[in-house]
Each structure stands twice: as structure tokens, then as C-alpha cells.
Design a protein around this nucleic acid. Structure first.
Lengths: 127, 127
DNA sequence: CAGGATCCACCATGATACTG
DNA sequence: CAGTATCATGGTGGATCCTG
């Protein structure tokens, strides 16, 4: 019996243009943003609802203020995250997902969940 | 009308333990591997079927030999990619997905597809 | 409270050359 | 063909201090 193992079925492939493999493809830049170390965590955190700066800082354990600012700015410029300054005393800023950001996290959360569930087996060489 | 916008429904959240946000969580390491710049492309390429070293080198446009070797080694150690040296003349090596790698690409390919389809809008500030 | 600015260190990455 | 070895570098990311 001849069969090629572990090849994605056609219906999953059709949407994936060859372009993603090209060096100059814009998707590379976008992928860099959304799969960045902290980008993933921030997006997943926001998928649970609106968060303040200080909440995100605590939630994404280990992130520096610099990287939080940089990550949020990139995601905001990409139209994935919405920044809402609240002019109250004391002032704060709320971050949430845009529609496009929400669409993205629907794909991202399962990936992170999978990584979480498989991490121990993977890192310990278990099948 | 009060409603919280763009929050994932409960059934998608339940599986996602708070642990992923912890600095020491093993999933961070795994995420680093599978969301790395070249890791993503190699996994997606292999989701289309078995590839040789030289094929992967050409497919992942712009990758250096060093990065290809490093990426493949990491993915192999993680049990996501299978390495099969072919003792023929001239010799070559086939790379393919393990069952676990296949499971992963089922989640990864939609993400890459999304990035590809949205890249232009995102980078040009279109809604 | 939410950042901006600056300095610095290191590691990931790339180029090149060589080998089993 | 499929890598490994070595070296150079620059960009990512952290620490610290400062501000609206």
C-alpha cells in the first residue's frame, strides 16, 4: 500500500498561495508581528477581553515596559489592537481587539492551546 | 446597549489555561520554535508533502544553509519533523512531518493563510 | 499611570569557506 | 548532496532614568 503520510488535504491547501514562500512577500512582515514572542501573548490576553496597560504588563509575565510598548504599538498600527485612552483621574488606557484582531485570535488561540498541551511531551521527547 | 466587543466565546477559552502567561511555562519554548521566522515556513512547506534539503532551501526563499540546518534540527528534536537519509547515489535526505507535526500544521496553515490574505490591508492601513 | 528616551549587551542571523 | 565551522554584525530586547 502506497500512501503519502501526513500531507494536508487539498481543501486546506488551496487557499495557501505559493507567495508565502517568496522572500518579498508582505505576509512575512505580518507573520513576524503576530508570531513574535510577545505579540502572541498580548493578542491571546486581549482575546479574553479589554485590558489596561498595567494589566497586560502583569499578565504577560516577564515582559519589559519597552517591549510591551513596542508590541502594542506595532499591533495597533497593524489594525489588530485598539487603543482607548481614558481621560479620568487617575488616567489609564484600555486596549482591546479590533474586528480583524479578533478574527486573528480565533486562529491563534488554538495554536497556543496546542503548544500548551503538547509542550511537556515535546520537550521531553515523548511521542 | 452594553456589550463587550471582540471577546472569544467561552468554549474557545476553556482549554487555554492561565499557565501560558507564566514566564517559566514550557509552552513558551515550544511557541518560540514553531512560530520562529523559518520554523513556520518549513512546517508549512512540509505540510504539502515530503521535501529534500535542497527543495526546502529553494522553497523557503531567502533562508541560509545555517538557518535551515538549525531550524530542521530543532523541529526534528521536537518530534515534529522526520529526517530520512536515503543511502542512494547520489545521496539525499527526505524530510516529512511526524503525526504531531501534522497535527500542528493543521492549525498553522490557516494562520499563515490568514496572514497572506490580510497582509496588504494590514500594511497599508486599510480596514 | 502610561509611556518615551537612551544606553548597552548579547544572541540570532547571515556570509563565507570547507567537508563527509 | 547535505551539511559543519568560523567569523562578523546588527537588531532585539533588557535595564535604567525621565516625563505628560
Amino acid at each position: 500500500m502506497t500512501m503519502e503520510a501526513n500531507v494536508l488535504p487539498a481543501h486546506l491547501k488551496t487557499d495557501l498561495a505559493d507567495g508565502v514562500f517568496a522572500a518579498g512577500c508582505p505576509s512575512r512582515t505580518v507573520l513576524d508581528h503576530i508570531t513574535s514572542k510577545w505579540g502572541v501573548l498580548i493578542l491571546v490576553a486581549l482575546s479574553e477581553g479589554e485590558h489596561r496597560w498595567s494589566e497586560l504588563r502583569r499578565r504577560a509575565d516577564g515582559i519589559s515596559e519597552k517591549m510591551l510598548a513596542q508590541t502594542l504599538k506595532t499591533l495597533e498600527r497593524d489594525g489588530l489592537v485598539l487603543r482607548k485612552p481614558q481621560p479620568v483621574i487617575p488616567p489609564h488606557v484600555d486596549y482591546s481587539l479590533t474586528d480583524r484582531g479578533y478574527e486573528l485570535t480565533a486562529l491563534l488561540v488554538p495554536l497556543v492551546t496546542w503548544a500548551y498541551n503538547n509542550a511537556d511531551d515535546i520537550l521531553n521527547g515523548r511521542p
